[in-house]
Simulated assay, not measured.
Amino acid sequence: MLVSWIRTLGAWLLLASVAHAQFQFFENMFGAGGGGHQEYRQKSAQNVPSDSSRYQSNWEAARCDKYLCPGTLACVHFPHHCPCPHPDVEEKVELGEGSAVCVSRGGYQEGEAARKIELARKGLL
Rank of each mutant, 00 (worst) to 15 (best):
H86P: 00
L73Y: 02
P83R: 10
H80Q: 11
A113D: 07
E91Y: 10
G98R: 03
V93R: 00
C69S: 03
P87Q: 10
P79H: 00
G107E: 13
Q109T: 10
R115H: 08
H81S: 06
E60Q: 15
L119Q: 12
G106P: 06
A114Q: 10
C84L: 12
S99C: 04
V103L: 15
D88T: 14
A100C: 04
W59G: 04
P83M: 07
L119G: 05
E118Q: 14
C82P: 04
C82E: 04
Y108V: 11
P70G: 08
S99H: 08
C64E: 03
E110L: 09
E60W: 10
H77R: 11
L95K: 05
V103Q: 05
A113L: 11
E118N: 08
A114K: 08
E112T: 09
P85E: 13
F78H: 12
R115Q: 13
H80M: 01
W59F: 15
T72G: 11
C82R: 06
G107R: 09
E110G: 03
V103T: 06
P87G: 09
E118G: 01
H80S: 03
V76I: 01
E118C: 08
L73V: 03
P87L: 11
E110W: 10
H77Q: 09
K66Y: 03
L119T: 07
E112D: 08
R105V: 15
D88S: 15
E112R: 09
E97L: 08
C64F: 06
Y67N: 00
A74I: 00
E90S: 06
V101L: 12
